[in-house]
Design a protein around this nucleic acid. Structure first.
Lengths: 211, 211
DNA sequence: GATTTGACTGGGTCGCCAGTCAGGATCGTT
DNA sequence: AACGATCCTGACTGGCGACCCAGTCAAATC
């Protein structure tokens, strides 16, 4: 069942690559145009591919969108895990997580995707499930860093899970505000709020955070 | 330009009433079906009215939706103002605000509207403006109650505005979680989080809140 | 080198839905 | 009563967009 094990470009590989390419284009197009006004043909155009090909690889538009959201969510959680496995004190890692949460600049509109997904998730159980896993991932990571800090004697916290839920919620809410009305909430102020709240939750002084 | 000042049912009144009725139906339909799959004809059906009539009172569907969101937002802010103008100690009023924030039961899905509106607001400046006013209203009210409490000597807080922003953000984020996955976050737990965070922000003990 | 399999094209179809329009009913005014 | 303004109806349309399909082409297999 194939020429040699060195074969890098079998038919299956080609299909996988094409699917990944389509997911990528889908993400870009949805970010740019919004879920509501994204057409299958837009994604086809962005990939320089015929409209028919989309439906060859994905049965329906919903399938494509759902797969794209799943892929994005999984890659986000993967990067998060790398962060908390990284070097530094617990507070440094916590700070890195907070900064990863927050859009890195005015032009980073990646959160738009999740605003669309939240609205979609209300009606679509598959999407809702993806969102549940993503949020669960965030909370778990936060709670894990806090526990690490407690073991290291850096932090004090009698309910890491609860603290993680509160922090995660606050960041979600503030990022919505920042994404929608960046004029009313600067990135600096957002990060400051995050550090103040996090410092309180883990029982350290706000000045313990890096400048 | 009219019979007597006692006239309660002039043509203008009738039109106003019909418009209000349509806005109300629009809200119900959007909550039930979601913005994305709400048709103008659905709203017409829900009002027992012809499709054409909608476009007699509202030029476009967008106009109708925007007006509905504006009306809903304004009524929400109005009710909020009543709460903080009400009786009781500052902490009682603060608690009332928190409880007004949180959906009153599993079946209260009113927040779905704002999830849809957030996604819409990314592309529609008019909607974004409404959202800005609504959030601004919440933050202002929170900050006002906190200030009242400080004047009364109940609270300590060196940045009421910042505290209000953090609380508002946290509640937004947690309510999203509650609305989307009520299984992962009970109303009780949500309220508990709100009280813990609020107590910290205003420098009182969590036990100061009503049971 | 013949045949099969899989990737891909592009035109077509079919249903849906916002918005239009011509006309009808009802109200207020004179 | 007559008339104009306003409210309302329901059939219609024009465009759009997801999905289908018949056919092409190239790579894999025999």
């Amino acid at each position: 069942m194939r020429s040699a094990e060195g074969a890098r470009s079998s038919r299956a590989d080609q299909a996988d690559q094409r699917r990944a390419e389509l997911l990528d284009a889908a993400r870009r197009v949805v970010l740019e145009r919004g879920l509501a006004s994204t057409r299958v043909s837009d994604i086809a155009k962005a990939t320089n591919v015929s409209g028919g090909l989309i439906h060859y690889h994905f049965a329906t538009k919903d399938d494509l969108i759902t797969a794209m959201l799943r892929a994005t969510s999984e890659s986000e959680v993967r990067r998060l895990r790398e962060i908390i496995a990284g070097p530094g004190t617990a507070i440094q890692r916590l700070d890195r997580v907070l900064r990863f949460y927050i859009p890195s600049s005015r032009s980073d509109q990646s959160w738009i995707l999740w605003l669309d997904a939240w609205a979609l998730g209300v009606r679509e159980p598959h999407v809702r499930e993806i969102l549940l896993e993503l949020e669960g991932g965030w909370i778990e990571i936060l709670s894990e860093v806090i526990s690490q800090g407690m073991e290291a004697g850096e932090f004090t916290c009698d309910d890491p899970q609860g603290a993680a839920e509160r922090l995660d919620g606050m960041l979600d809410g503030l990022v919505v505000r920042y994404t929608l009305h960046s004029g009313a909430m600067s990135r600096k102020r957002l990060l400051e709020h995050a550090r103040i709240a996090a410092a309180r939750e883990v029982g350290v002084d706000r000045s313990s955070f890096p400048a």
